[in-house]
Computed example of a mutant assay.
Amino acid sequence: MPALRGPTTYDNEPPRNPLLKVNAKVPFNAETPRSALIDAYVTSVDMFYKRNHGPIPVLDDSDRYFVTVGGLVQRHLAISMDDIRMLPKYTIVATLQCAGNRRTAMSKKRTVKGVGWDIGALGNAVWGGARLSDVLKLAKVPEYTAVTEAGGRHVEFTSVDVCKEENGGPYKASIPLLQATSPEADVLIAYEMNGKVLSRDHGYPLRVVVPGTIGARSVKWLDKIEVNANECQGFFMQKDYKMFPPTVDWDNIKWPSRRPLMDFPVNCAICSLEDVSSAEWGKKVIIRGYAFSGGGRGIERVDVSVDGGKTWVEARRYQKEGVPYVSDTEDCDKWAWVLFELQTEIHPPTDIIVKAVDSAANVQPEKVETIWNLRGVLNNSWHVVHVNNAAKKISSNL
């Protein structure tokens, strides 16, 4: 068992970078400032967004820490850190994103419920650990298994933390068994982030990383792995992180009518423009930002308009500097964001707009009103930056 269960008070929180944009102090939720998002392809650990539902657990990776593997499997296990480290180590570059990223734009149209995220509730990191499929093999669950002999179809992850939404119980979530047992899905039981031991804020000593899927499924501070017949019945699978049409409100909502969110849709945002001085207007400026899509789908192109959508120009895409980005090549990090850049002139007043298209030809919707939902999740409408000549400032319709 873990050396210490999740605390119920906030007396032992880890230190945080003061440059983070704090959206809630208790529990602590903070995002990366816009300009810092594009400082580097890999987001530093201290500037990576923090999404929490309770106090940060205090655990160690000594002999007292075990992750149990059970449920509808042939062999039940208690796995130590040494056991995990003995499995083949894999590293993946993957973007994690809160489902509420860019929620503020929805709240400007109509009230939504949730943390008021700008465009920085995401980050790109190098994750290291064992593949979940290798862990499940130890429990006699073969690769590429959709259902076990005992009827297991879903893999549930349980954390150590304490959440008010779970009535003081731990955070939990699940993914389909086929995804969990497929090596190509790259689901990790991670113990490293950017080549270093996980920090407390990011799940030390073990966390799940489910690439291409909303961050809510990448459970931190891992305690249990269970193979079950049904998907997780916890709050964050059944009564949160679901997307409803604009007609649904809190009076007529029916939670069982919608599936839990999994893959995130194609999205992009401008990070380089917040304030533009008058000296830059009419001269060349560099428009930079990120683009990504879920499920391992690459970014086919990023379109930029500096005249409110009348004309469009394709931006340059890259991941590693100096290497042209082409999805589905050995140089492509398929789970990671793509950075884009365009040098152009702007002439206020105008709207600067970006929209992305992924490798499956999925296109971002134009207006946030068409995808508004009461939880403010998965806002992937066009990202618009308003250039106001009179105010000589940049404001954003995120």
Score class of each variant (00 low, 15 high):
M1G: 15
L4F: 10
D11L: 15
N12M: 09
N12I: 11
N17W: 00
L19C: 12
N23I: 11
V26S: 09
V26C: 06
D46K: 14
M47T: 09
M47N: 08
F48E: 03
N52M: 15
P57A: 02
Y65V: 03
D82V: 13
K89D: 07
Y90K: 15
G100Q: 08
N101F: 00
N101S: 05
A105Y: 00
A105G: 15
M106R: 03
G114H: 08
G114E: 05
S133I: 10
L136C: 06
A139L: 07
A139K: 02
A139E: 07
Y144I: 03
G151K: 05
R153N: 06
V162N: 04
K172F: 05
K172Q: 15
S182F: 01
E184V: 12
Y191R: 06
V197K: 12
V197E: 09
Y204P: 02
V210K: 01
K220Q: 13
P260V: 09
P265N: 10
N267D: 15
N267H: 11
C268K: 06
D275F: 13
V285Y: 11
G294P: 08
G294T: 06
G294A: 07
R301Q: 13
E314W: 00
R316H: 08
G322R: 03
C332Y: 04
P348T: 01
D351W: 07
A356N: 06
S359A: 14
S359P: 12
I371P: 06
R375H: 10
N389V: 05
